[in-house]
Write a protein that binds this DNA or RNA. Sequence first.
DNA 1: AGGTGTGAACACTTTCACAGCA
DNA 2: TGCTGTGAAAGTGTTCACACCT
Lengths: 213, 213
Amino acid sequence: MSAPKKISESVIRRLSLYLRILESLERAGQGTVSSEQLANHSETTAAQVRKDLSLFGSFGKRGLGYGVPELARRIRTILGLDRRWRVALVGVGRIGSALVEYSGFEERGYDIVAILDVDPSKIGAEWGDLTVNHITELENIVRERSVEMVILAVPVEAVPAVLDRVTCAGVRGILNFAPTTLRVPEGVTVKNVNMVMEMEALSFALSKEEGEE
Amino acid sequence: MSAPKKISESVIRRLSLYLRILESLERAGQGTVSSEQLANHSETTAAQVRKDLSLFGSFGKRGLGYGVPELARRIRTILGLDRRWRVALVGVGRIGSALVEYSGFEERGYDIVAILDVDPSKIGAEWGDLTVNHITELENIVRERSVEMVILAVPVEAVPAVLDRVTCAGVRGILNFAPTTLRVPEGVTVKNVNMVMEMEALSFALSKEEGEE
DNA sequence: AGGTGTGAACACTTTCACAGCA
DNA sequence: TGCTGTGAAAGTGTTCACACCT
């Protein structure tokens, strides 16, 4: 019933955005919202908003707009946020350790249920109520704690070995912070977070402007 | 001579990627590379690689491929990496403090030359050889230290006020970690890093698969 | 009137296929 | 022969415009 066609990357990104806007409208007590308003808050066009939503059904009332709580609920279901997810963090270096303490994931339904690392000196450390385990434990832990996704925050050199263990353990979603392209088997989804790449896009934009004026 | 047309987002992302691959080939001592090889390492097609590069000139030798060091140098110039950039970090919460210690930015030519925060309790703290200043100092600091970009790592509530100061101070590039759409004046470029959004894309992909099988 | 849902037009990106150079 | 550079074709994503519902 829900997703008949192939849904593109950008649609999903925009849905995430709409959801955040809806939640803030919900807090503000607004009951209904138009595609126009959603577009204003998300740097898109009203038509785009309607197209995006119509890919998953027709949730709006003509002449009225969309019901804020209802639309929020619908989008949550679409994005798989109507349940909680069990996540393992692999790598507690600079980035990894910041992520353990970061509350954003938990708020959105992603529970970190295990922490692993390759570095022996880090094993056994306590982070909140979790203890750092060695990466060799991954397969057991994934099974025992029903881990569905992994946040990969290890240095580039460590990626191949770790990635192999992760995929073998049956994990089907990876959020990758290492600045490399992960080669994964069919059926495993990878999303990359690459801060330096975004910085490069910035410096590209700024250098270009200078050249133009 | 260099960028006649409008260059799209995705081209820039791929250039960053190619550059990383080239650097690793450079370390491995490989002198020349074909579009085919670059494509293999970056999950694209050879034609795409050639199109991307041809937007900026023709750096290749027919029948031979591209000279690794030369192409790397060219891409660095395109991305504005042939110089160093002066960056201020605004917000030393969870994410901000991880970023101060993160070496990835410096390696690529982004020097953090100032750290600011709104929270009075954080002012005066030492991070390496930098002292945390209050956000009200931003305008002075930007002028004195020639800050060109800002990494924005403050909580969503603090964004509007901080953003206002940042743009008034004349900063023209912002790397935003807050999960909001920044509304900035003409001439200011924003790039977003949104980890939770990527997680949502993951859970969307995983939920969808489950529904299908 | 006001605002959705959507086919059709348009714009942009990617892929194909091949001419042309080393 | 081998691989680049690039027009033309195919494919995607976005915008327009309007029928239709409340």
